[in-house]
Write a protein that binds this DNA or RNA. Structure first.
Lengths: 141, 141
DNA sequence: AATGAATATGAGAACTATTCACAACTGTAA
DNA sequence: TTACAGTTGTGAATAGTTCTCATATTCATT
């Protein structure tokens, strides 16, 4: 199991390797991303980053998130309602259950579904580049 | 197999039954929705509706689409990139493949995937209210 | 056909999430 | 330490959608 600082360092290394500058603002954002266990949006990440590096602007948060997404170190999700939400890619691939009452996000993973997706695409002459699977659920009574 | 006017009439009936007024603008929109075989967005639906009823405004298109969604006669999709796109609910439930190169939308249906989704949710103490499954694909070479 | 009351409409302002333009600043390789 | 390309904050701009409000329309009742 890797620590938050491990995760942040790995992301930093990925940036350096790609010739992308590691600025104070980016360090702050990488830090909050690494320690986030939820799926925060850009405004929330901005709030958190400001406690570390008060100068960070929201525009920079957005710009940096796009850079990080391009570098493959964060994933952007667009769940129903509200803006995009982010998480680091240091975990295994997974999809999401959204609790429609509480807004809670639960991660799950199903090889079978992934396989079926590939099969369906293949039969239609396609290959899956990426997918989006979200289950909007309610707690069973 | 039902005709476009059947579909439009069913939608009209649903509105009447719910005590919702059937206006010229709504008739125009229901018409274009019924005959659409693609997945148009609000602006596109507005264009099409204007050819039938020139007075329709974009605001009314949006308002009516929300009403129709509440009444369960249209589905709203938020595919990656761009705004919401709509289709009538007169077909069987299905999910979508999006061709990442051409933007083409292909419909597919998989009972197995649906079952697996229910299973996964159930194991975690949830029941699926609705889901979103989109495969972003590229044509196989 | 006329009435009336609630509902729907068009126009444009407002709003939300995000990106852009640009002048000033800063990380990094030399 | 310098040089310069990449990055930043600010505020303006954009896209998609919803809201406000005065006017117009639908439709059940007469």
């Amino acid at each position: 199991m890797s620590s938050e600082s491990d995760t942040a360092e790995k992301m930093t290394a990925a940036l350096r390797k790609a010739g992308i500058r590691v600025t104070r603002q980016r360090i702050a954002l990488l830090g909050v991303l690494a320690e986030a266990t939820d799926h925060p949006d850009a405004v929330e990440l901005h709030e958190r980053a400001k406690t570390v590096e008060p100068s960070v602007s929201l525009a920079t948060v957005y710009r940096t998130l796009s850079v990080l997404e391009e570098q493959g170190v964060v994933h952007r999700h667009s769940f129903e309602g509200g803006g995009a939400r982010f998480e680091t890619t240091h975990e295994e691939h997974h999809d999401h259950i959204l609790d429609v009452d509480t807004g809670e996000v639960i991660e799950f993973q199903s090889d079978k579904i992934e396989q079926l997706q590939d099969e369906i695409a293949r039969e239609l002459g396609y290959e899956v580049v990426h997918h989006r699977l979200e289950l909007y659920c309610r707690k069973k009574t």
